[in-house]
Design a protein around this nucleic acid. Structure first.
Lengths: 209, 209
DNA sequence: AAAAATCAATCAATCGATTAATTAATAATA
DNA sequence: TATTATTAATTAATCGATTGATTGATTTTT
């Protein structure tokens, strides 16, 4: 039945996404993935051809979710530059931190120097978000709200980099913060508001005149 | 002869560092490392006990210089908090950006959720560096030079995270900056001074009263 | 001669992938 | 509708290759 087949493939992709994210591509064995998914190992090859095919399928299923993160804040004329940046930080931390598992996977594979077509595709999608923030800051400088001397690209790197550091180096970050950043309740109730508040204060101090 | 033995071990560590950085921990086989180093495979276990021991030896050799620099900063009573932070940023960007290849490897492995003893050990070493910076900022708040409301841990995450973002997501960062961050000349002559200048201005605006 | 270093050979374990046999689901036919 | 033919899905078993590690013999150094 087509419905059940799709459900099963989706379930495999769910499990594969988690195992790949936790262990990395090489350490994530097909036996582990099939075992946790409760299916026979041969089903992975039956559905996806190979381990690499499974990996690509996980990626491509997620691409749409990344695309949906775009805000179109840049075209909103009713907000000034700082309000747009404030809104982006709010949405960015809200959306991306909950799926930090997959975000880690993306960042890890992106840090490898294998120039697949897939990596280029993902790079372009990530770049779209980056350029949107860059545009907001550049517009703020053009309108006179932000300091002319402010370094736009570096500020963008700080927004994405600070979040990545907390979610990607969870072992170190957890010890530094005295709490487990992988703990959902702590992340939701304490860390997320704290990151937002900090990033806004930081950029306000640096960007605003 | 002790001298030759040290040279040979150092040579193995040199090769291992390169192979680990290029392929990642899992994909870097002991046969590849020993082959490129021109030594028998058994020598790796003879010298370093295991593959994990070899990786740890590579890491500890790499971080030794970095650690001593930080400890010296913390115990220097002749500098105030901001001067220490300034000196740290200077040294941090200078030393770590040139070897971004290995830094990428560490970051990649740290982002995995596999809790072997290896990652715990590396996490502890990295934490030592993180806590040194944290101490500098906390001391600055205690002495009244920095704002009491400043978020110490987030500021630490920004320092490490901003640099990591530029070096680790080189594909996206290069497109955003309009230059190849892997190009040594651009990195040395333009990007490194720019990152230093930016981080100092950013933290000055956020931390200082 | 004693100790340390190095080697080829091999170990058991695990990897991704494939096979052949079996079951379940669908289509065709009478 | 009942039975059969066909296809799809699933399984256990196993393939060859590769992994990290170890052995015992051999060479080199002390």
């Amino acid at each position: 039945m087509e419905k059940d087949k799709s459900d099963k493939k989706d379930h495999i992709l769910d499990v594969a996404e988690k195992v790949f994210s936790d262990l990395g591509y090489d350490a994530a064995s097909t036996r582990t993935i099939s075992g946790e998914a409760g299916v026979n190992m041969a089903m992975l090859n039956y559905y996806f051809g190979s381990k690499e095919g499974l990996f690509l399928a996980v990626f491509e299923r997620k691409i749409e979710m990344f695309r949906s993160m775009l805000q179109n804040l840049g075209n909103d004329a009713s907000m000034n530059a700082w309000d747009k940046l404030d809104a982006f930080i709010e949405a960015f931390i809200n959306k991306v931190v909950v799926n930090s598992c997959f975000a880690k996977l993306i960042n890890r594979e992106m840090s490898l120097n294998r120039r697949d077509g897939l990596m280029d595709k993902i790079g372009d999608i990530l770049l779209t978000n980056v350029l949107e923030v860059k545009k907001i800051i550049d517009d703020g400088k053009a309108s006179g709200q932000f300091r002319q001397e402010a370094d736009t690209e570096m500020a963008v790197a700080t927004i994405f980099g600070t979040k990545n550091y907390i979610t990607n180096t969870s072992l170190v970050a957890s010890k530094m913060l005295g709490n487990d950043v992988n703990d959902a309740a702590y992340m939701e109730n304490e860390l997320k508001p704290r990151i937002k508040k900090y990033l806004k204060e930081l950029l306000k101090a640096y960007l605003l005149k």
